[in-house]
């Protein structure tokens, strides 16, 4: 034995721990704490001005035109969340249930449904933007080609359809994720339980609602929470497909775009305001943290240990 082994070991542990810890402290914890602090100051471009208390929060919540924009973007996020809950998580659950049968070709279907998930949102956004082009897009070309030309419309150009077009593009992109998370959950259900159910009933509905759904509750907790956080952070897809202003007429404006625009300026580069932007970031952050915590807590409570 040489020197002081205890001291050497303590130094060794410190050497292992400190660099990663310092990294997270500097680039995660410090910025997030600062984000809260910045919201209470006035900003002149990139320079921090005087302390203004809650003035920035008051501005984005209660003065026009900010108040209307905030409410509009928030409501769009709410719609996006519930629509994706059905089109992404609901469809994903059904697909997982079908894949779980392990019919011939299931392995191929599994790889196929997850393929879009690995693509960049930028690629997916541009691809669907081209497909949805009013004149030359493959969607309208197909409708016209099959005699449904009357249904062809400028999907991204009308207030009634633009947000839904984005939602569907997002569901196509991400449906493979909940599918495979649910599938992994189903595959962990013990065979004896399933055999016992098959003896009792023939109804698929009973099997799903009484056995499969309760037993995949841990998977559900995770995909619901992730979808919630993802929906209220939604930025890339609307940025690419609808633009930073949430066109047409803010029909596709969501909190992510609105926050970006407020902090860094709109298409014309005007309206840049770090104070109001920070206040929005804090509000979005608090909302996500509180609701995601609540969702996780409530859903955890109904999880059953097998």
């Amino acid at each position: 034995m040489h020197g002081s082994p205890l001291l050497a070991r303590r130094l060794w542990i410190t050497a292992l721990i400190v660099p990663p810890l310092a990294f997270v402290a500097l680039f995660v914890v410090y910025p997030i704490i600062s984000a809260f602090a910045y919201a209470f100051f006035q900003w002149h471009g990139l320079a921090r001005g005087e302390f203004v208390g809650f003035a920035n929060f008051y501005k984005v919540l209660f003065t026009q035109p900010y108040a209307d924009w905030t409410v509009n973007a928030f409501l769009n996020n709410v719609l996006v969340f519930f629509a994706l809950m059905v089109l992404q998580n609901g469809v994903g659950f059904l697909l997982a249930y079908f894949l779980w049968r392990e019919l011939p070709g299931a392995a191929f279907h599994r790889v196929a449904v997850f393929l879009p998930v690995v693509l960049s949102t930028i690629i997916v956004g541009f691809l669907w933007k081209l497909f949805l082009h009013p004149l030359f897009g493959v969607v309208n070309i197909s409708l016209r080609g099959t005699g449904l030309g009357s249904l062809a419309q400028p999907w991204l150009g009308q207030e009634g359809t633009a947000l839904w077009a984005l939602i569907i593009a997002n569901a196509w992109h991400m449906v493979g994720f909940p599918t495979l998370v649910f599938l992994a959950g189903m595959q962990r259900i013990p065979g004896e339980i399933l055999d016992a159910v098959r003896m009792e009933t023939e109804s698929e509905w009973v099997k799903i609602s009484k056995i499969v759904w309760p037993l995949v509750a841990p998977s559900a907790t995770i995909v619901f929470t992730l979808l919630f956080v993802g929906s209220f952070n939604w930025f890339e897809l609307p940025y690419i497909m609808a633009g930073v202003d949430g066109s047409p007429h803010k029909a596709t404006d969501v909190l992510g775009l609105y926050f970006y625009r407020t902090a860094f300026g709109d298409q014309s580069g005007s309206g840049q305001d770090f104070g109001a932007g920070s206040a929005l970031a804090v509000l979005i952050f608090m909302f996500i943290a509180v609701v995601a915590g609540f969702i996780t807590f409530r859903l955890r409570a109904r999880e059953i240990q097998i």
């Binding site: 997270v24 995660v28 914890v29 910025p31 997030i32 902090a263 932007g277």
Partner: peptide, 22 residues
Amino acid sequence: FFVAGLTLPLKLAIIPLFILMR
């Protein structure tokens, strides 16, 4: 400390990050 970082959406800290990088 690390696990707490799992759930924080870092996008929302983009203003302080921008200033930090500057």
